[in-house]
C-alpha cells in the first residue's frame, strides 16, 4: 500500500462524505424555502409571480452549496492534484 493508494482511498472517502454532508444542508434549506413559499402563496395569491421568482432564485442559491460540494467531490475524484492521474 503505497502513498498513491492511500491518497486515492482518502480522496474517495472524502468525496463521498462531501457529497453526503453537503446534500443534507441543501435539502433542509430547500425544504424550508418550499414551505415558506407555499405559505406566502397561500397568504398572498396576488403576489404569485414575485413569490415564484424569489422562490426559484432562493432555491438555486441554496442548491449552489450542494453544487459546490459536487464540484469539490469531482475535483477530489477526477482532478486531484496529489494523484498522478489528474484528469484532463
Amino acid at each position: 500500500m503505497n502513498d498513491q493508494t492511500i491518497i486515492a482511498v482518502v480522496a474517495m472517502a472524502g468525496a463521498g462524505l462531501t457529497m453526503g454532508l453537503g446534500a443534507i444542508g441543501a435539502a433542509i434549506g430547500e425544504s424550508r424555502i418550499g414551505a415558506a413559499a407555499m405559505d406566502a402563496l397561500a397568504r398572498q395569491p396576488d403576489e404569485a409571480s414575485s413569490i415564484t421568482r424569489t422562490l426559484f432564485v432562493s432555491l438555486a442559491m441554496v442548491e449552489s452549496t450542494a453544487i459546490f460540494c459536487l464540484v469539490v467531490a469531482l475535483i477530489l475524484l477526477f482532478a486531484n492534484p496529489f494523484t498522478g492521474a489528474a484528469g484532463g
Binding site: A60, M61, E63, S64, I67, F68, L70, V71, L74
Partner: peptide, 16 residues
C-alpha cells in the same frame, strides 16, 4: 465565484 461555479456545476453535472 458562486455565480460561475453554480452554472458550471449544474450544467457539467447534468451532462456528466
Amino acid at each position: 465565484l458562486a455565480l460561475a461555479v453554480r452554472l458550471f456545476g449544474n450544467i457539467m453535472s447534468g451532462h456528466l
